[in-house]
């Protein structure tokens, strides 16, 4: 029972980490980055290369984040910016970008599964319960990312500008906020978070060119259910992640894989604006 509860909490934390990059981009830019899955994959390969090069696995998420930020900046300039007023097309173009990234990775590394070294192995003793140390660490990382993003949004100049753009972009621009720059940095940040998250989850999984896809769909659903707010993303991750763990352990892992998608579609039908609005 305690194990199940820990599974729920850590799964939710992982979902939060994975979805946060997508949410930041949706919030500020009002567009859905379907290359999110490919960025996760890119992060996975960054982690793989880091450990292959003999560097500490702890460095992997940071390096992956830096790579993601750089790639994100370029992508925003070249692909996303022209589509700012065609949000449904932006979904498609970023999906196409995902195909490009995936194929480049396939050409570079082949289709086979690779493994990245884990920064820590074994279990931690939590008052009689042995639990995966790495999953617990990830939970702490999720809290740290949530805290850092909140601080970024509420304590910095960039955050103030970003919030202004979230609320009313036209007005924000009228006040002299360079919204193009805010968007550029946001996309870089979101891509960086995605790559970092990809590097963080690789020790739990293997790395292959399509590893990001299931995560993309789940993050997409989570973000739409939560709306744009960090606490409500945490709440949505907790609800849907726990449901997924419960269904997987009590009914079937295959149906468990569907939980988030189906539950999100139903929740959105009942609350079209998501959990975060009106709070």
């Amino acid at each position: 029972m305690a194990n199940l509860a820990l599974d729920m909490i850590t799964t939710s934390a992982i979902l939060f980490v994975v979805a946060s990059g997508l949410m930041i981009i949706l919030g500020v830019m009002k567009l859905i980055n379907f290359a999110h899955g490919a960025f996760l994959t890119l992060g996975g390969y960054a982690a793989y290369l880091t450990t292959e090069a003999g560097l500490s696995p702890w460095l992997a998420p940071l390096l992956a984040g830096a790579v993601g930020f750089g790639v994100g900046i370029v992508v925003e300039r070249v692909i996303v910016r022209p589509l700012y007023h065609r949000p449904l097309d932006a979904i498609l173009a970023t999906w196409g970008l995902g195909i490009i990234i995936g194929q480049l990775i396939t050409i570079g590394f082949g289709r086979e599964v690779q493994f990245a070294a884990s920064p820590m192995t074994g279990t931690l003793d939590l008052g009689g319960i042995e639990y995966s140390a790495y999953r617990l660490t990830l939970t702490a990382v999720a809290l740290a990312i949530g805290g850092a993003l909140t601080a970024l949004l509420y304590l910095t100049r960039f955050g103030l500008n970003a919030r202004a753009v979230i609320m009313n972009e036209t007005l924000a621009r009228g006040l002299g906020i360079d919204s193009a720059r805010v968007r550029l940095l946001t996309f870089g940040l979101g891509a960086g978070l995605a790559c970092g998250a990809g590097a963080l989850i690789t020790p739990l999984l293997s790395v292959d060119p399509n590893m990001g896809l299931p995560w993309l769909v789940n993050s997409f659903m989570l973000v739409l259910v939560s709306g744009v707010s960090i606490p409500s993303l945490a709440l949505a991750s907790l609800i849907l992640g726990s449901a997924q763990v419960a269904v997987s352990s009590y009914i079937s892992p295959i149906i468990g894989g569907l939980t988030i998608v189906v539950l999100a579609a139903v929740l959105l039908r009942l609350y079209p604006k998501g959990l975060g609005r009106g709070t």
């Binding site: 065609r86 490009i100 050409i107």
Partner: peptide, 19 residues
């Protein structure tokens, strides 16, 4: 793999430049 890459590039180019 190259073929799929070309499709991906063509798709992005068409969406962005030639809707």
């Amino acid at each position: 793999f190259l073929w799929k890459l070309i499709t991906g590039v063509a798709f992005v180019v068409v969406i962005v430049l030639l809707p």
